[in-house]
């Protein structure tokens, strides 16, 4: 168990918003990766007392995968596929308050604008922290949160409770979901107070077109330059090979590349 050594804080109320994800290759529905990490973080913070909230259809089988992570219940705010989730979530959180609301950065299907946590935070008037990797401490109504930066870097932020946070892929991996608990877990279904997202009805959803790779456009001023650009050996066709020389020279060649790439400062 990745987090078995952390004592969950029972009096912290954590609510995790979960969505239905999809597998990038097969397109089949599944638990969404970042949402599952959020659930994992919720489990670490509040154990099985942390809540799961989903706006959508309880008949979606992928939702059971969240229950399979060992949580007894998932609150489903029953709504149609085109419903706007934010009002429903805001109402629900007003009725059943939470200290921390976690969710993924972006959904895995649909528009995936990643706006839900922002709109929710705006609506609730809570601060929002994007892309967190961990919540380190909660002390005196303040949480110290580790934010994930690109390339494995981290930043520590302090924020007062309650707050909304989106969970980055850098957060600890979600535990495996198991068939037994997923079968036993139950849904607390309530009818959501939502409005249809009419604006999106006007949009067109198409299968993703492959984006063209940007070509290295050579803006040559002279014929010679154009000629050179057209005939130059393309990059990446085999690299430089150093066979002779002392170890020192070879190491220096490598070091020069490392410095040029900026990985060694």
């Amino acid at each position: 168990m990745p987090n078995s050594n952390v004592n969950p804080e029972r009096n912290i109320r954590v609510a995790t918003l979960v969505s239905v994800g999809q597998h990038p290759k097969s397109g089949r529905t599944r638990r969404a990766g970042q949402d599952a990490r959020a659930v994992e973080l919720g489990l670490k913070m509040a154990g099985t007392a942390s809540r799961l909230i989903h706006v959508g259809d309880m008949a979606e089988p992928a939702l059971r995968q969240y229950l399979g992570m060992g949580l007894p219940q998932l609150s489903v705010l029953q709504a149609g596929p085109d419903a706007d989730a934010v009002p429903a979530l805001a109402t629900h959180l007003d009725e059943q308050p939470a200290d921390i609301v976690l969710t993924g950065v972006r959904a895995e299907s649909g528009e995936a604008s990643g706006m839900v946590p922002y709109l929710l935070a705006e609506r609730l008037g809570w601060p929002l922290i994007p892309r967190i990797a961990d919540i380190q401490t909660i002390d005196n109504g303040m949480a110290e949160v580790l934010q994930a930066l690109p390339r494995g870097q981290r930043r520590l932020l302090r924020v007062p409770l309650p707050f909304v946070a989106t969970v980055d892929n850098a957060a600890p991996e979600a535990r495996q979901y198991a068939f037994g608990p997923s079968r036993r877990g139950n849904f607390a279904v309530s009818l959501a107070n939502t409005t249809a997202d009419d604006e999106r009805q006007q949009w067109q959803e198409l299968p993703a077109k492959p984006r063209p790779k940007r070509l290295n456009v050579v803006k040559a001023k002279s014929a010679a330059d154009r000629f050179k650009a057209a005939t130059a050996k393309p990059q990446g066709q085999g690299g430089k090979v150093i066979r002779d020389g002392t170890d020192r020279e070879k190491a220096e060649a490598i070091m020069a590349l490392l410095v040029a790439e900026g990985v060694v400062r």
Partner: peptide
């Protein structure tokens, strides 16, 4: 596996893939 969800190492990933793509490698 079924009750505890404790298939070690790559086990969980392989099972996820089997569920989502019908093959253990997660290929389309």
């Amino acid at each position: 596996t079924l009750e505890r969800g404790e298939t070690p190492n790559k086990g969980a990933e392989v099972l996820d893939n089997l569920i989502a793509t019908d093959n253990p490698g997660g290929y389309a």
